[in-house]
Simulated assay, not measured.
Amino acid sequence: RSSPNKGLHILDRSEWLGEPPSGKYPHLKLPVSNIIIHHTATEGCEQEDVCIYRMKTIQAFHMKSFGWVDIGYNFLVGGDGQIYVGRGWHIQGQHVNGYGAISVSIAFIGTFVNMEPPARQIEAAKRLMDEGVRLHRLQPDYHIYAHRQLSPTESPGQKLFELMQNWPRFTQDPTSLESR
């Protein structure tokens, strides 16, 4: 399903065969002002069928191993250049403790410690953020943070973190992001 945002392709949960959430989670108060970028620290995917397989694996891991009600991220971006809806714009994520209520998480499928994500994966994430502003889900002056700025983790991987620092909305100082 395409949006008016040319080149943005979003697969909703029914399209990647996501399991229903096992419980309820609070709604986000929209529009939000913060995006947190992650990597899934899994293998990547270059084709839709492989990305769908990764999505199902990540969801099962989050629900079975962490005991979460659903996949923890709001959105995931495949190396196929498509967006996979996790919790979407409306439901709080469980991506970083204390930040679910004030941010939307975008996870890049793959591990980006020693390699950069493909250009189309980055492009898709940027288009999703533009779309968020267009739909009034994101404040026009939103801030982008890396997961590692907010908790002790490798995520989103050194190579992706280096790239992000050139993005116009990247915010160096995470203290401006108040944890709730």
Rank of each mutant, 00 (worst) to 15 (best):
A60G: 05
I106C: 08
D49N: 13
S105P: 00
S155L: 05
E46W: 02
A146D: 06
K126R: 12
K64C: 11
T171F: 00
L163V: 12
K29T: 13
R169N: 14
R1S: 15
Y84C: 13
H39T: 13
I91M: 13
F61I: 08
I144Q: 07
K6S: 13
E19N: 14
P117R: 06
H9R: 13
F108N: 03
Q82S: 14
N74V: 04
Y145E: 05
A146K: 05
G72V: 10
A41V: 03
Q94I: 07
N34L: 01
E48Q: 15
E19P: 03
Y25W: 11
R1E: 12
Q59N: 05
L76F: 04
H62V: 05
L76M: 15
V133D: 06
V32L: 12
E123G: 04
S14W: 01
I58H: 02
V77H: 02
P26C: 09
P118K: 11
W167I: 10
L11E: 04
G88F: 04
H62I: 06
S179F: 00
G7T: 10
Y145M: 07
T153W: 02
G88K: 06
F161Q: 09
H147P: 00
Q139E: 14
G44A: 08
Y84Q: 14
G110S: 08
G78K: 03
L8W: 01
I71H: 00
P20A: 12
N74Q: 10
G98A: 13
P21N: 12
C51Y: 00
N97I: 10
K6H: 09
L11I: 05
K64G: 10
L150V: 07
E162V: 11
I10D: 08
P117Y: 02
H136K: 15
E162Q: 15
S105K: 01
V69D: 05
G132A: 07
T153G: 09
F61L: 11
K29G: 07
S155N: 09
E19Y: 06
E48V: 14
G98I: 10
Y84K: 12
S3E: 11
L163R: 11
H27L: 14
M129R: 02
A107Y: 00
V133G: 05
K126T: 14
K29L: 09
A41F: 01
D173C: 03
I71V: 15
I10L: 11
Q59G: 05
I106Y: 00
V96M: 02
R148T: 06
K159I: 03
Y53F: 08
Q59M: 08
H38F: 15
T40V: 08
T57W: 03
Q172F: 04
G88E: 09
V104G: 06
G110K: 03
